Computed example of a mutant assay.
Amino acid sequence: MSLITVCLTNWKRPENLEKIIAQVRSQSVPVKIFLWNNGESIINNDIDWYVESSHNAMCSPRWFMAANADTEFVCIYDDDLFLMDNNIFADIVKLADKSPRGSIFGPTGVTLKPGTHYRDAEHHYSFRSIKQEDIRCDIIKGSMMLMRTSELQKKVNLNIFKFKREEDIIVSALMADCQLNQHYCLLSFGDRFNSVGDDDVALWRHDGHMDARELACNEFFPQHND
């Protein structure tokens, strides 16, 4: 029986997909793979649920797929992150079993600084870190977010998820009941993750990205305004 459902979205990075799917499937814990394809058609028989969209629906479809997961854990996964060994998911599940049920785990996170703009917050990246331990933070970024399926489906109304962007901030807030310092950025994993998200497709390169994320923080983390 599968332990984790991995929800992938693809847009203009088909060259990454085959590698990512193979890396996810080779993890030491059993997984299901859901893929919402916003780009060109692909053929891959190792996908459990495949949806091909006639237009780029951006990020919100991954939460629609998460609403249909029936495994203990669900993992939101972007198309620019590589797994560099086969035990990453197993090690995250071990951490999750010792952590609050609403916690989210991922390689990139944010610690907000109340009263300051999102761009001036502390941004954490495991693949750039030399720290040997994980840290608590406020937001796990959408490159990868692993969490308990039951908690996600209980706390977030996923079937009517309409947000095109910044949904990682919204889910981080709702899973933590809008409290700070509830999630885990996996800095100790270091270069077990490899990000290739520096191309023109990356959302952080878009005009207005930081301001849109600041607005989401202001709405869903009341302490951010203090």
Rank of each mutant, 00 (worst) to 15 (best):
Ser2Asn: 05
Thr5Cys: 15
Arg13Gln: 03
Asn16His: 12
Asn16Thr: 01
Asn16Gly: 10
Ser28Gln: 10
Val29Ile: 10
Asn38Tyr: 01
Ile42Lys: 06
Asp46His: 06
Glu52Val: 09
Glu52Thr: 05
Ser53Arg: 01
His55Asn: 14
Ala57Arg: 07
Cys59Tyr: 07
Cys59Val: 08
Pro61Tyr: 00
Arg62Tyr: 04
Ala66Glu: 12
Ala69Val: 04
Asp70Leu: 08
Phe73Pro: 09
Asp78Ala: 02
Asp80Arg: 02
Phe89Asp: 01
Phe89Trp: 02
Asp91Gly: 10
Val93Tyr: 01
Leu95Cys: 06
Asp97Val: 11
Ser99Gly: 04
Pro100Ile: 12
Gly102Asp: 12
Ser103Lys: 07
Ser103Trp: 03
Phe105Asp: 08
Gly106Met: 07
Pro107Lys: 00
Thr116His: 01
Arg119Ile: 11
Glu122Thr: 04
Ser126Leu: 08
Arg128Gly: 12
Ile130Ser: 13
Lys141Trp: 00
Ser143Arg: 11
Met144Ala: 15
Met144Arg: 06
Met145Gly: 09
Phe161Leu: 03
Asp168Leu: 01
Asp168Gln: 07
Ile169Lys: 05
Ile169Phe: 02
Ile170Asn: 02
Leu174Gln: 14
Met175Asp: 09
Gln179Asp: 08
Asn181Pro: 07
Gln182Leu: 00
Gln182Thr: 13
Cys185Thr: 10
Leu186Lys: 09
Phe189Met: 04
Arg192Ile: 11
Asp200Ser: 06
His209Gly: 10
Met210Thr: 08
Ala216Glu: 04
Asn218Cys: 14
Phe220Val: 13
Phe221Tyr: 08
